[in-house]
Design a protein around this nucleic acid. Structure first.
Length: 581
RNA sequence: GCCCCUGUAGCUUAAUGGAUAAAGUACUGGUCUUCGAAACCAGCCAUGGGGGUUCGAUUCCCUCCAGGGGCACCA
């Protein structure tokens, strides 16, 4: 089923063409920037303002509008006219043509109860999504949440619209930072300050401790670089330690992804897998003169004239950089997937890095560079400032999830102690609160993480939407009426009812907008507003006690459609919608 | 110094170049013998300053101010 916007657009173009034919005019609809928008409900459902400002000669805008509707739209023959009607000529004076969707439209749109969010504009297009990138030997903290939930929500929305998606964690398992960790680990073992078993019992805490300790040494950077260079050259001791660290880290990543209920990743290609792909890129860059070798042996691309400074591909000690690994990654992805888009869901502190990567890739003539994009987001900070591993001011992701569940459990105990599957619901609601909190913010702004905001269950929150859904499901459960699968309108609709149907049907349009700008918060916003409208609706409309059978049937159908929309929308954000809570 | 992002109600946020800028929270009142009060209703409060483009600017451009981030042979 087409969206209202698509239907109105088609009809407008047809009306233009009809009027052109009838009156030998030469207006060209494709040049008129036809823009159709949902509008304030006092005007109608949708408005179009594309004719604004075209008054010329003796005709006023109002006359042109009137002529367009009366001589074009009204006289032409089109099957889709049954779905939408232009509203009274009053609106022409204000410069808009307003439209209202018909009951027939809703009946056809909701005919198949779960397909109206689905689309196929993504058919044949592959999108690579790079998110939830963790670093080796570090536990995920709340800062990692944003990348995970934004990436996961985008993946879900893309799938709903027919795209093929490849999710990759692109694990940070290579680089100097890792060398520092190796240095710290080996020093502790050699100096007997820690035993191997002691480290292995609680590896993340122990490694963190050693890492912080090592960073107090002045020349730790040099030592780390040396250890990393050894690793890169295949030193067997370093290799073995590295493999162990990668192993426990991947397991930790899997645990966290499972707890966050993320869709499965197609790939976990760590940066280390690009080892052999890097030398040819360096050779090519040097051969073509794009990169230069400095006196001390480093390989750099000078982008300073473009305000992007120097991009280092190889360091003077021969070790590769993150930037070079990202170049190799793009190359791999192009050849493996011929992607339509290659998206990096990474915080905005790395925008300079990605600008360098994309620019160098462009200079090297890589394919698919224009389709690579940094989906940047503001980073999460605590009320007292940025989180820092070194300062120990880090809130671990698992701790937040635990706390969320604990709070949800307490609320259930207070409000619905008889609930049968309390644990599962506490998990859904706690996770729903956190995810929604994150996803409801425009990804570009920074987020201040406060437990009382992030784990709130009241107002503009995930649990509010889940609660609304549960209430609607509860009404459906209690109804003794038989509700037909086929959505149909049996009784005249009032304003509130119409508004709910319109709101529900707009899910598809919202998903398209989410993809246009890579903005999942638009979906979060949309769901909250729909839940709000649904709450007002069932508070003001007695449904089960409605005497008129036809009316009651219609109300129940609306309830079912809205409940389904809420559940579908939440699912696309990666949030569960329990039937009871 | 150069580059990027962000400035909207006390606080946290929304708004696709469109009509009277939308919510939540906080605060003040009201609604549970009526489909579940994690709810609903009412009240209160806002586009950082100045220019420009446009029929129309929170949105685009310029400038100033404020905040954050980056400008590592870290990732």
């Amino acid at each position: 089923m087409k969206t209202p916007k698509e239907i109105i657009h088609t009809l407008l173009v047809q009306a233009f063409e009809f009027k052109n034919r009838e009156e030998n005019q030469t207006w060209r609809p494709e040049n008129m920037n036809i823009k159709i928008m949902p509008t304030d409900r006092r005007f109608g459902d949708y408005s179009a303002s594309f004719l604004k400002g075209i008054a010329h000669g003796t005709e006023t805008e109002e006359e042109i509008f009137r002529g367009f509707i009366e001589d074009g739209w009204n006289k032409m023959d089109s099957d889709e006219k049954k779905y939408v009607e232009p509203l009274s000529a009053e609106s022409f004076k204000s410069g808009f043509i307003n439209f209202r969707m018909s009951d027939r439209f809703y009946e056809d749109a909701f005919k198949e109860s779960d397909t109206w969010s689905k689309g196929n504009e993504g058919a044949g297009k592959t999108v690579i999504l790079d998110y939830f990138q963790l670093n080796i030997a570090k536990e995920p903290h709340v800062g990692h949440l944003r990348s995970a939930v934004i990436g996961d929500a985008l993946k879900r929305v893309l799938l709903a619209r027919g795209y093929r998606t490849i999710a990759d964690t692109h694990v940070g398992d290579w680089g100097t930072q890792f060398g520092i960790l190796l240095y710290a680990y080996k020093k502790a073992i050699a100096g007997k300050s820690k035993k191997i078993d002691e480290i292995k019992d609680n590896p993340f805490v122990a490694l963190q401790e050693l890492y912080v300790l090592a960073n107090e040494e002045e020349d730790v950077h040099e030592k780390g670089k040396a250890e990393f260079a050894k690793l890169e050259q295949g030193d067997s001791e370093n290799r073995a330690i590295w493999e162990w660290m990668v192993d426990i880290s991947m397991k930790k990543l899997g645990d966290n992804a499972a707890r966050l209920d993320l869709l499965p990743f197609e790939e976990h290609r760590g940066e280390s897998v690009y080892e052999s792909a890097m030398p040819p890129i360096v050779e090519e860059a040097l051969r073509t003169g794009i990169a230069k070798k400095t006196d001390d042996g480093a390989v750099v691309v000078d982008l300073s004239e473009e305000g992007l400074d120097e991009a280092v591909l190889v360091k003077s000690d021969g070790a590769t950089t993150y930037l070079l690994r990202d170049l190799a990654t793009i190359k791999y992805r192009v050849s493996a997937y011929h992607f339509w888009k290659n998206l990096y869901v990474v915080d905005n502190r790395q925008s300079h890095h990605f600008r360098q990567v994309f620019r160098v890739a462009e200079l090297l003539g890589f394919e698919g560079v224009g389709a690579s994009e940094h989906i940047e987001f503001g980073f999460m900070k605590l009320p007292e400032g940025a989180m820092s591993t070194r300062k120990g001011t880090v809130v671990l992701l698992e701790a937040v999830l635990d706390e969320a569940e604990r709070r949800a459990r307490a609320v259930i105990q207070e409000k619905n102690p008889g609930l049968h599957n309390k644990e599962a619901v506490a998990r859904s609601v706690g996770l729903g609160a956190i995810k929604f909190f994150d996803l409801s913010h425009n990804r570009k702004s920074d987020i201040v993480f406060r437990f009382e905001d992030a784990l709130s269950f009241e107002g503009r929150t995930g649990p509010y939407i889940q609660y609304t859904h549960a209430r609607l499901k509860s009404i459906l459960r209690k109804s003794t009426d038989e509700i037909l699968d086929h959505f149909s309108v049996h009784a005249a609709l009032d304003t509130k009812e119409r508004e709910l149907l319109l709101h529900s049907v707009q899910l598809a349009e919202v998903l398209q907008r989410v993809i246009e700008g890579w903005f999942p918060h638009l979906l979060a916003d949309y769901l909250f507003e729909l839940a709000q409208a649904a709450n007002e609706f069932y508070h003001s409309h007695p449904i089960l006690t409605e005497k008129d059978t036809e009316k009651r049937t219609t109300l129940l159908m609306i309830v079912r459609v809205v409940a389904k929309t809420l559940a579908t929308g939440l699912d696309l954000l990666g949030i569960e919608a329990p039937d009871e809570m």
